[in-house]
Design a protein around this nucleic acid. Structure first.
Lengths: 176, 176
DNA sequence: TACTATGTTTAGTAATTACTAAACATTCTA
DNA sequence: TAGAATGTTTAGTAATTACTAAACATAGTA
């Protein structure tokens, strides 16, 4: 049995919405990305409204988030004051961009708070059962080291010119 | 100025709660992990209640999730029918465990739905403007390949005996 | 200038998710 | 067996987040 393209597009959009939710993003965001990703030409805000069923307001804000993450790009046509949006199709590029974005996020500020805690322990200014202080100190130090490893890794990824499948395979071969 | 250990523990717990939220997990889950992580001995459910302020019910369910992810372990003492919980302190081990867990999750089922869509396109059973069908086909294929790359990578990580900081550095040096 | 086309912000609503309180289940002990 | 100690489930509530509708802002055009 055959299926209409329009139906297939809708199914695809539905799928990406779920994936988006899984990653902790609004499902509308996944839908917006999906319609842009499978559109041969950039779309205007109103066209996105039409294809997703969301309102202008929601799209306006979510498309900005997507742009910040490098997953979509805003462009414009001469003599047309509409904004147009298109999806980034190089996902590896997006990943780098997302990691970069993350560095000024709340995540890092939370990590810094752990760092603070560690400093207090190192300066010896924490009172309480000696052995327990010692234990807590070691644990938090280990956690901090783990965070640093992740940080190192993600910074390196950001620097990579291209993180394609080829490179992934290279990495794996090194690790046997 | 000195700080009491109890206060420091609380701050640390607060910090991990936020990190937990950032990753899309309930903040209570982060708190539970935190108190276990900095406890020198395994804790019973009631002790966790005491230290987090959450109720038994919430902890009961969230500790199960944590256990499934390999972030905490349940144990018991002879002649004591309480359950005791302790945190996994090898994070690399946890990461592998989380990735493994993920493989049977909704995430993969969503990815499979994209795979379905791709199959339909490949079997030529989609009707519509030929050029557009072609375009959509290519895009979805590229997305699928990206998912596969991630999948390959995470499967490889699962297999690693130890993914310590040392190995991370090895990877990075290969990539220049 | 007023009018139109566009995008953004805002205030409120709907939907979702995290959590509580309490009923329930199970197992041990007297 | 009854009672106590523990853990789980459930039904409802609180908190959070996503989204809508509509007011607003801005810039272009008649």
């Amino acid at each position: 049995m055959t299926k209409k393209l329009s139906q297939l597009k809708q199914d695809f959009t539905e799928g990406l919405s779920q994936i988006s939710r899984f990653w902790g993003f609004p499902k509308g965001m996944g839908a917006i990305f999906a319609v842009l990703y499978i559109s041969p030409a950039p779309l205007s805000l109103d066209e996105i409204v039409e294809q997703t069923g969301l309102t202008k307001g929601a799209i306006s804000t979510e498309v900005r988030t997507l742009a910040r993450m490098g997953l979509v790009h805003r462009s414009s046509k001469l003599a047309d004051r509409k904004d147009y949006y298109e999806a980034e199709s190089d996902f590896y590029k997006s990943i780098r961009s997302i990691l970069k974005e993350r560095q000024n996020s709340e995540f890092d500020s939370a990590i810094r708070s752990v760092q603070e805690t560690l400093k207090e322990l190192e300066s010896g200014s924490v009172s309480g059962d000696e052995a327990e202080v010692q234990f807590v100190h070691e644990r938090i130090k280990a956690l901090q080291e783990f965070f640093n490893a992740i940080d190192t890794l993600s910074k390196a990824v950001i620097k990579l010119e291209s993180l394609g499948l080829g490179n992934v395979k290279t990495i794996l071969s090194v690790l046997k």
